[in-house]
Measured scan of single mutants.
Amino acid sequence: MQGVVKVNSALNMRSGPGSNYGVIGTLRNNDKVEIIKEVDGWYEIRFNGKVGYASKSYITIVN
């Protein structure tokens, strides 16, 4: 499943599904990501070869 990031500035990509996990990357508005699965309001995603987590509130699913 594919998604597009929708933010005003930047979205942190984290090592786990929560804001208490470390930041491993930064996503920008309109970045395209691969959604692997949903975990407690977060998406596990793949972006630029990295796998991490981002809040699903800021990612819109596209077909």
Rank of each mutant, 00 (worst) to 15 (best):
residue 33 V to W: 02
residue 19 S to G: 11
residue 50 K to F: 12
residue 5 V to R: 01
residue 6 K to Q: 15
residue 17 P to R: 02
residue 56 K to P: 05
residue 30 N to S: 10
residue 8 N to Y: 07
residue 44 E to K: 08
residue 54 A to H: 01
residue 2 Q to M: 14
residue 12 N to K: 11
residue 6 K to C: 06
residue 37 K to V: 09
residue 18 G to H: 05
residue 35 I to W: 02
residue 30 N to V: 03
residue 5 V to C: 04
residue 11 L to S: 06
residue 7 V to I: 14
residue 11 L to A: 14
residue 17 P to W: 01
residue 40 D to S: 10
residue 41 G to C: 06
residue 53 Y to P: 00
residue 2 Q to R: 07
residue 28 R to P: 03
residue 43 Y to A: 03
residue 37 K to N: 12
residue 62 V to F: 11
residue 49 G to F: 07
residue 58 Y to M: 12
residue 63 N to K: 08
residue 34 E to R: 03
residue 58 Y to F: 15
residue 28 R to K: 15
residue 48 N to W: 11
residue 61 I to R: 08
residue 46 R to C: 05
residue 29 N to Y: 09
residue 30 N to D: 15
residue 18 G to S: 06
residue 49 G to M: 09
residue 56 K to D: 04
residue 24 I to N: 06
residue 42 W to Y: 11
residue 58 Y to V: 11
residue 6 K to V: 14
residue 21 Y to D: 03
residue 26 T to G: 04
residue 51 V to S: 11
residue 33 V to E: 00
residue 23 V to S: 10
residue 19 S to C: 07
residue 45 I to E: 00
residue 17 P to D: 01
residue 28 R to Y: 15
residue 15 S to Q: 09
residue 62 V to S: 12
residue 41 G to V: 09
residue 23 V to M: 06
residue 21 Y to R: 03
residue 23 V to A: 07
residue 30 N to H: 12
residue 19 S to L: 14
residue 55 S to P: 08
residue 7 V to C: 05
residue 27 L to I: 07
residue 28 R to D: 13
residue 25 G to M: 11
residue 26 T to D: 06
residue 3 G to P: 02
residue 26 T to P: 06
residue 8 N to E: 14
residue 59 I to C: 03
residue 13 M to H: 02
residue 13 M to W: 09
residue 24 I to Q: 04
residue 8 N to T: 14
residue 42 W to Q: 02
residue 20 N to R: 10
residue 23 V to F: 04
residue 16 G to W: 02
residue 24 I to P: 01
residue 61 I to Q: 06
residue 28 R to T: 11
residue 19 S to A: 15
residue 27 L to H: 00
residue 41 G to Q: 10
residue 47 F to R: 05
residue 33 V to Q: 00
residue 53 Y to N: 01
residue 63 N to G: 14
residue 54 A to I: 10
residue 61 I to M: 11
residue 48 N to Q: 14
residue 1 M to N: 12
residue 13 M to Q: 03
residue 45 I to D: 00
residue 37 K to A: 15
residue 46 R to S: 14
residue 63 N to V: 13
residue 21 Y to A: 04
residue 18 G to W: 01
residue 29 N to H: 12
residue 5 V to H: 01
residue 53 Y to D: 00
residue 12 N to C: 05
residue 56 K to R: 09
residue 5 V to E: 01
residue 42 W to R: 01
residue 2 Q to Y: 12
residue 23 V to I: 14
residue 45 I to L: 10
residue 30 N to P: 03
residue 26 T to R: 08
residue 50 K to P: 02
residue 2 Q to F: 11
residue 16 G to Y: 02
residue 55 S to R: 13
residue 50 K to M: 14
residue 11 L to D: 03
residue 7 V to R: 06
residue 16 G to R: 03
residue 46 R to E: 15
residue 12 N to T: 13
residue 28 R to Q: 15
residue 27 L to T: 02
residue 17 P to F: 01
residue 31 D to R: 03
residue 23 V to D: 04
residue 39 V to Q: 09
residue 12 N to A: 09
residue 20 N to C: 06
residue 27 L to W: 01
residue 59 I to W: 02
residue 2 Q to H: 14
residue 15 S to M: 08
residue 55 S to G: 11
residue 16 G to V: 01
residue 7 V to T: 12
residue 28 R to S: 15
residue 36 I to N: 07
residue 17 P to T: 02
residue 13 M to F: 12
residue 40 D to C: 05
residue 45 I to S: 01
residue 43 Y to I: 04
residue 26 T to E: 15
residue 4 V to E: 09
residue 25 G to K: 07
residue 9 S to L: 13
residue 52 G to F: 03
residue 22 G to T: 14
residue 35 I to F: 04
residue 24 I to E: 05
residue 16 G to S: 03
residue 34 E to N: 04
residue 60 T to Q: 13
residue 57 S to Y: 12
residue 6 K to D: 07
residue 11 L to I: 11
residue 16 G to F: 02
residue 60 T to D: 14
residue 6 K to S: 12
residue 6 K to F: 05
residue 3 G to V: 04
residue 40 D to F: 08
residue 37 K to W: 06
residue 13 M to V: 08
residue 33 V to N: 00
residue 21 Y to C: 04
residue 50 K to R: 10
residue 62 V to A: 09
residue 24 I to K: 04
residue 50 K to S: 12
residue 49 G to S: 10
residue 22 G to M: 11
residue 43 Y to T: 02
residue 10 A to T: 09
residue 11 L to F: 07
residue 26 T to L: 10
residue 53 Y to C: 02
residue 31 D to P: 01
residue 15 S to H: 08
residue 13 M to L: 10
residue 39 V to K: 07
residue 1 M to P: 08
residue 18 G to C: 03
residue 31 D to Q: 07
residue 12 N to D: 15
residue 57 S to V: 13
residue 33 V to A: 03
residue 48 N to T: 09
